[in-house]
């Protein structure tokens, strides 16, 4: 097998399977679907976790800290396995598909990371801003809504974009459960062609195009936001 023949096979496989059989669109579709669910659910849940972690209730603080540390300290694949088996048990009446279980696992994982992004984004706002607001007699709620959060969002949004890119890559773990996202196409095509390396390289190119495009878009958005202030 020469380098030339690898590129040749990459092209063949791409045309025949990814375009011809539509694996490109289904693969990207499922990957983006999973990523979008994980990012949106992760951001919502992550915000709640961040608020909970900053609350005065010590018990809540400790529970959330433990959750975040465990999610960050164990492999995502392991978490997906556990979600894959446990989620159907908990919601046995719902008859959940494997992709739904994987989405739950990814969302929980992303929530842990997002909560830290939000918390550090809020804490990165200069303490003097809060002090000035409180010294003017503003309540802690008004201070948070009018002064701290608007400034924190500028720290949070870029990091959230990076988290989106990370999650796009992490959805590849879902191929373990054969849910149809991009990485699953490897097993499909390999089963027919027995041609591993060109297939993997095709997949690599597709992932790269997705993440590179997204990161450029995010960069543009970030630049716009900086000019806005």
């Amino acid at each position: 097998m020469t380098i030339g023949s690898i590129f040749h096979d990459m092209w063949e496989i791409f045309i025949t399977y990814y375009i011809g059989q539509g694996l490109l669109w289904s693969g990207i579709g499922y990957t983006l679907l999973l990523s979008a669910i994980a990012v949106v659910a992760g951001a919502l849940l992550g915000s709640l976790l961040a608020i909970g972690k900053m609350s005065r209730f010590k018990v809540l603080h400790w529970i959330i800290t433990a959750f975040v540390e465990i999610m960050r300290g164990t492999p995502a694949l392991l978490q997906l396995y556990i979600a894959y088996f446990i989620v159907p048990m908990i919601f046995s009446s719902l008859d959940l598909t494997p992709i739904a279980c994987v989405a739950v696992g990814l969302s929980l994982n992303s929530a842990a990371y997002v909560s830290e992004i939000i918390r550090s984004g809020i804490q990165a706002v200069d303490k003097g801003q809060t002090e000035a607001a409180r010294a003017l007699g503003l309540t802690s709620k008004t201070t948070m809504l009018k002064i701290v959060l608007p400034q924190a969002i500028k720290n949070i949004l870029p990091a959230l974009g990076n988290e989106f890119i990370t999650i796009i890559k992490e959805t590849s773990l879902a191929s373990t459960f054969f849910v149809g996202e991009l990485m699953t196409t490897y097993a499909v095509i390999k089963g027919v062609t027995f041609n591993t390396v060109p297939t993997l390289m095709d997949i690599g190119v597709i992932y790269f195009v997705m993440t590179f495009t997204l990161s450029k878009l995010l960069g543009l958005a970030e630049k716009k936001m900086k000019e806005g202030a």
């Binding site: 003097g128 801003q129 000035a132 409180r134 010294a135 003017l136 007699g137 309540t139 400034q151």
Partner: peptide, 18 residues
């Protein structure tokens, strides 16, 4: 908060809302 509204403070680092 009501007490603070009677005595405002000026800081070393200005602390204008960015």
């Amino acid at each position: 908060n009501l007490g603070r509204r009677k005595m405002s403070m000026v800081f070393q680092q200005f602390n204008l809302f960015n």
